[in-house]
Design a protein around this nucleic acid. Structure first.
Lengths: 180, 180
DNA sequence: GTTACTGCAAACGATTTGCAAGTGG
DNA sequence: CCACTTGCAAATCGTTTGCAGTAAC
């Protein structure tokens, strides 16, 4: 288990290399943003990053945040997600387990799977003419709470409409039954 | 092999059911939009959908397109993607092979894999307390063209900087070597 | 010193919303 | 004929950009 202190040093070195190689300047803002991102786990958006940096008494403009996040994406230290809404979410690349995202289409909450080895090396070999850097997997469905509510809702609607769902619809609903 | 004619009828019936069940009105705009989407394959965004409907001599407002696409998402007939940029892309759910998306982080082009059975039933069982409706897989990396350009670029930068990449960086670059 | 970077505010563009007119049930 | 839906235009909101001042190199 790598310590957070060590990880922060490693990614700083990595970023330093990236900036040197690509002839970008090493400003305090850039390292502060990287370090800030790597001092917490989980997802964040630009607004929460901005607020959390201000709260930590580090004055930085939104323009600089957007500028820097692009460098972090390019250097592979941060990944970008976009779930249901139109606000981009970001996540540090290292120090997180390999995981897929579970997005509830009803309440919008996002969960993560633990240690999902969905993408094995043998499967990677199948993909020709493309060199993989990283991947994101988004699984849409209903969380247990919404699934429960939804089933009651569908039943209610069926009754109200005195209408039976056709075969296609039935198959679809079968798919979204809870998996033990 | 299902004919496109038959598929269009099926999804229309499905949409009809959805609208009935949820007490939404069956307007000509809604069915025209669905049918328009299911008469072509591939990705589209709201702007291209709007223009292509106008070209097909069907006057519809953007407000109605956004309204209707939400119903189509809710009914599961259309899926939404958001790749690198901040424009949502959409895709019809049925009549497409099960595929993952390959996104080149350099040129931004998007490819699809054919018949990728990445997500097997046994893997689905691992996910507890979540009922899966559908999933999207986004694989980021470099297409063969950009990968070639990038390797030359990195070599050039290394020479210019008289700098060897450290171990971490080396490992990372290994990952993005072409896979046969 | 030169040039890239920062911060600010204004611009941008995709999406959403308010409201009057239209139409499905 | 009621109220949901459409179309239009204005509003919204995340993100990008232009520009003047600042700092990395």
């Amino acid at each position: 288990m790598i310590t957070n202190q060590k990880l922060r040093k490693q990614v700083k070195d990595e970023f330093m290399n990236y900036l040197t190689l690509n002839k970008h300047r090493k400003t305090p803002e850039r390292f502060a943003i990287l370090d800030h991102i790597y001092s917490t786990k989980g997802h964040f958006d630009m607004d929460s990053l901005y607020n959390s940096m201000i709260d930590a008494n580090f004055r930085v403009s939104r323009a600089t945040l957007y500028n820097t996040i692009q460098l972090l994406l390019d250097s592979g230290l941060v990944v970008r997600h976009q779930f249901g809404d139109n606000t981009a979410k970001y996540e540090r690349t290292f120090g997180n387990e390999n995981h897929a995202h579970l997005i509830c289409t009803s309440c919008g909450q996002v969960w993560e799977t633990k240690n999902s080895n969905i993408f094995t090396p043998s499967q990677q070999k199948k993909i020709k003419n493309f060199s993989i850097n990283h991947y994101n997997m988004y699984i849409y469905g209903l969380c247990s709470k919404c699934n429960h509510t939804n089933k009651l809702h569908v039943k209610k609607l069926e009754r109200e409409n005195e209408l039976k769902l056709d075969i296609d619809k039935k198959e679809k609903i079968d798919i979204i039954e809870p998996l033990i």
